[in-house]
Computed example of a mutant assay.
Amino acid sequence: MQLKSKKEQVSLLGEEVCILQPLVKKGITSYINYLNKKQAFIKLKLEMKESENQIVLKNHESHLVKNEIRVLDKKLRLSLSRQLSKYQQELNLMSMPSKKFFSNK
């Protein structure tokens, strides 16, 4: 939302600078006013570019975190699956002698 607002401001300031330039050449408006507007335009463009860079950086960081979560999730699932398999084998081994014991009687 801030980026959209800055883009609109840059657009408006750009138009104003374009309008003021010929007026300065004709002596209708002051050169200092033109320079102030142009300076504000350049500053706002730099701020907008910085905002865009921050968005890209945050998206990249978010992507990295998502990948780390996926890796950790896979490791956890694999570990749980191994534990479950191990416990299932132990349970099967424990239940085998009791079956033999009860079937012999």
Rank of each mutant, 00 (worst) to 15 (best):
Q83K: 15
K100P: 00
L78S: 13
K45L: 07
K7L: 03
S103C: 05
S95Y: 09
V24T: 08
S62P: 01
S85Y: 06
K7D: 04
D73K: 11
K58Y: 05
M1C: 09
L72V: 02
K86I: 12
L57D: 15
K7P: 01
S5Q: 04
L57A: 14
L23C: 04
S11A: 05
I42H: 09
H60V: 07
N92Q: 15
K6A: 13
K38R: 13
E68N: 07
E50V: 01
S81D: 02
K99G: 07
L23N: 08
I19M: 06
L64M: 11
L20Q: 02
R77F: 04
L93D: 10
M48I: 03
E61I: 06
K105L: 05
S98A: 08
K74C: 09
K66L: 09
E15K: 11
V56W: 13
L12W: 08
Y34R: 00
Q89I: 12
S30W: 03
S98H: 08
D73P: 05
S103E: 10
V10W: 03
I32T: 12
K43W: 01
I55D: 11
K37W: 00
N67W: 11
V17C: 02
N53V: 09
Y87G: 00
L46Y: 09
R70L: 07
E16A: 03
S30G: 10
S79Q: 10
Q21S: 05
P22H: 02
N104C: 15
R77K: 12
V24Y: 04
N67L: 15
S11Y: 06
E90F: 04
G27E: 02
E90L: 07
K25G: 01
S79I: 10
V17Q: 01
L12C: 06
N59G: 10
L78A: 14
K45R: 14
M48R: 13
L80P: 04
P97G: 07
H63V: 00
P22I: 00
R70W: 13
Y87K: 10
L35P: 00
K6W: 13
V24H: 02
K37Q: 13
L84T: 07
I19K: 12
I69V: 14
N36E: 10
L84D: 10
P97N: 04
F102S: 07
L23F: 04
Q89L: 09
S79R: 12
K75W: 04
N33C: 03
L46G: 10
L20Y: 00
E68L: 10
R82C: 08
V10H: 01
L84G: 13
L12V: 08
M94E: 11
N92G: 12
E16Y: 03
Q88G: 05
K38M: 15
I69F: 13
Q21K: 10
P97L: 03
L23V: 07
S79Y: 09
I42C: 10
E47M: 07
V10K: 10
I19L: 13
N104E: 15
E16F: 08
E68I: 03
L72S: 02
L46W: 11
V17K: 08
Q89K: 15
R70D: 14
K37H: 06
K75D: 07
I28A: 09
N104A: 13
L64R: 14
K100Q: 11
N36F: 01
F102K: 03
I42E: 15
M94F: 09
S85D: 00
R82Q: 05
E47L: 06
L72P: 01
E52M: 06
S98W: 13
L23A: 05
L46H: 11
S81A: 08
